[in-house]
Simulated scan of single mutants.
Amino acid sequence: DRRNTAETKALFDKHRPTHVIHLAAMVGGLFRNIKYNLEFWRKNVHINDNVLHTAYEHGVEKVVSCLSTCIFPDKTTYPIDETMWEDLPHHWAVCLETFQQRLAVPSCRAYHQQYGCQFTAVIPTNVFGPFDNFNIEDGHVLPGLIHKVYLAKKNNSALTVWGSGKPRRQFIYSLDLARLFIWVLREYDEIDPIILSAGGSSNVNVELAAWGVLEKLLVGFDLTKSDGQFKKTASNSKLRRYLPDFQFTPFKQAIKESCDWFTANYALARK
């Protein structure tokens, strides 16, 4: 449990890592954030402080933390870039989680300034892929849709999408993100964060994402559910300056691979 300082130190004592990709967190989609806003804040503050300070104490050469685009303001100019992480206001549904994630940026700077630590952070857009959390209520938008479509096909029933389907989201395939994490760990030397985004082709509204998953199903929209932030379109200009030739998996291919994995592993998938 990374919330526990002693357990975190014991883990580092056991494995003696030289490099750390820090993914430990309480995470979830929009509706889990709304339901457990305070728990997100309290648990993740403890986790992040324990991981970074224990990494410093154990002489870890580099730590890469993972944030999300919810750190950016709700209403702003687009596309969002890495300089805007301090801007306000946040979206009400993720306010505490936003503040908690933002702390990672000055924390990395402070460890670098005071101790010379090479601690940095990445900001991926909406991640999806095999081994995701496909829980309909607590998961993120695409894995939740994949699960709903699976059940609708199995039961020969209509599909209901929560919200209006109009908000826009950028998606990044987890296998592409994994390759970028390795690059950041090995090659990215800045302390300030970098956005990891596939760019314009990955920027679709939720309704279009639903159509990308389903096949000939009737679709309805539950307007009693919150849409969340309307858009979080993020620039990948900084990433492209470093990696102009990086090839992202085409969105439709990534969707198909994710659906195929979920269908083949339904009994074991997180849901």
Score class of each variant (00 low, 15 high):
Lys231Cys: 11
Asn133Pro: 01
Lys231His: 12
Asn50Thr: 11
Arg179Glu: 14
Gln101Thr: 07
Thr249Cys: 13
Val105Pro: 00
Lys62Met: 05
Arg270Phe: 03
Ala269Ile: 02
Ser258Glu: 04
Thr18Ser: 14
Gly139Arg: 05
Asn205Glu: 10
Val122Asn: 02
Val94Gln: 09
Cys70Trp: 07
Pro250Trp: 06
Gly129Gln: 08
Glu57Lys: 09
Gly165Ala: 03
Phe248Asp: 01
Leu142Ile: 15
Pro73Gln: 07
Arg179Leu: 12
Leu11Val: 04
Phe221Cys: 10
Leu196Phe: 00
Thr77Asn: 14
Val63Gly: 04
Ile255Met: 08
Leu177Ile: 02
Ile21Arg: 06
Phe12Asn: 03
Ala178Phe: 09
Gln118Lys: 15
Ala210Gln: 02
Glu190Met: 11
Glu39Ser: 13
Ala158Ser: 15
His15Ser: 04
Ala24His: 03
Asp74Pro: 05
Ala264Tyr: 06
Val51Lys: 07
Leu67Ala: 09
Phe31Met: 00
Phe262Tyr: 15
Glu215Phe: 01
Gly116Ile: 13
Ala121Ile: 10
Thr83Gln: 12
Asp189Ser: 12
Ser164Arg: 10
Ala198Trp: 07
Thr249Pro: 05
Pro89Val: 08
Trp85Arg: 04
Thr125Glu: 07
Leu217Glu: 11
Gln101Ser: 10
Val184Ala: 06
Lys256Ala: 14
Thr224Gly: 01
Cys108Asn: 15
Arg42Thr: 15
Ser174Tyr: 07
Thr120Lys: 11
Asp260Gly: 02
Lys231Phe: 00
Asp222Ala: 05
Thr54Phe: 04
Tyr115Gly: 00
Phe72Thr: 02
Met26Glu: 12
Leu88His: 12
Phe262Lys: 06
Gly165Ile: 00
Lys148Phe: 02
Val105Phe: 07
Ala254Lys: 09
Leu23Ser: 12
His46Glu: 13
Asp13Tyr: 01
Asn156Ser: 07
Thr18Met: 04
His15Gly: 00
Leu23Met: 14
Phe12Ser: 00
His53Thr: 15
Leu185Tyr: 08
His90Cys: 08
Trp211Leu: 14
Ala93Trp: 01
Leu96Ser: 12
Ala152Trp: 09
Asn203Ala: 07
Met84Ala: 09
Ser226Ile: 05
Ile21Glu: 06
Leu52Ala: 10
Gln100Met: 14
Tyr36Ser: 12
Leu67Val: 04
Asn203Thr: 03
Arg241His: 06
Leu208Ile: 15
Leu196Val: 05
Val213Met: 10
Arg240Ile: 05
Asn265Thr: 04
Lys225Phe: 06
Lys154Ser: 09
Ser65Ile: 03
Leu243Gly: 08
Gly165Glu: 05
Ser197Trp: 00
Lys9Ala: 13
Thr125Asp: 08
Lys43Phe: 03
